[in-house]
């Protein structure tokens, strides 16, 4: 065969298969990010609660998430829970659980940070011009919190998108897995691997780059 390896991508439905895999990646990431925002808000508020036990609980959770490799958590849930509790979780559900467990803690910590970064005198001077409590939140506190939060939340989101690549280890056929299948089929074509991975690299780049641009833009605008 004299073809360049890149041609394997245009044989049959290979490119569509890759895009299908990318969609699995994105779907997983989007569900995770959505749930992480939702639970992260609760987590952040819990971190700010005056109850010591709530704070300790959050701290421990956050530490676990930070020092435990995501892959270990994935194996733990996917293989461990199945054996231990007899749960038959499919790969994607396990992944959503693990990544949400992680995202919730990280997002919660960002939300806590953003909330506490607004100085008290902002609240007081807003109250001093006669706004109600609700108006103080609506016009003064929430907009400032979002401005601090959004760039960081976007960065976290791109990290989540990247990390979803791990789920191929628990038998989810996402973009990387599809790539490996294609390479497997064309093992006679030695440079196929390079081109397939290169295209996957481009796909990730195309998905994450706009996010990171947006984050930079927002950071500059709201600095």
């Amino acid at each position: 065969m004299q073809d360049l390896g890149i041609s394997v991508l245009f044989r049959g439905v290979n490119f569509q298969r890759l895009l299908g895999g990318l969609w699995v990646t994105l779907r997983l990431a989007l569900i995770t990010i959505g749930l992480s925002c939702l639970f992260g808000l609760l987590f952040g508020l819990l971190m700010l609660s005056k109850k010591k036990i709530a704070k300790v609980f959050c701290r421990v959770w956050l530490e676990i998430v930070r020092f435990m490799p995501q892959l270990v958590l994935l194996y733990l849930v996917y293989f461990g829970f199945a054996r231990l509790f007899g749960w038959d979780l499919d790969g994607e559900t396990s992944a959503v659980i693990v990544f949400t467990f992680w995202g919730t803690a990280e997002m919660g910590d960002l939300i806590r940070g953003a909330l506490t970064s607004i100085p008290l005198h902002q609240t007081e001077s807003a109250a001093a011009i006669g706004l109600t409590k609700g108006q103080v939140y609506l016009y003064v506190l929430i907009p400032q919190t979002l401005r601090r939060l959004l760039p960081q939340a976007i960065n976290l989101s791109t990290r989540i998108i990247k990390t979803t690549a791990l789920v191929k280890m628990i038998n989810v056929t996402e973009v990387l897995k599809v790539g490996q299948q294609i390479i497997g089929q064309f093992y006679r074509q030695p440079d196929a691997a390079f081109w397939v991975y290169f295209v996957i690299f481009l796909l990730y780049f195309l998905v994450c780059w706009p996010f990171s641009l947006l984050a930079k833009q927002l950071e500059k605008r709201w600095a």
Binding site: P119, H121, Q122, E124, S125, A126, A127, A128, I129, G130, L131, T132, K133, Y139, V140, P143, Q144, R147, W222
Partner: peptide
């Protein structure tokens, strides 16, 4: 309280314009 505060202006030492 907010109704009464509408009739009392207050300016503080720290600059507390809303930065956004």
């Amino acid at each position: 309280l907010h109704v009464i505060r509408q009739k009392i202006g207050m300016v503080f030492q720290s600059y507390d314009l809303f930065p956004h």
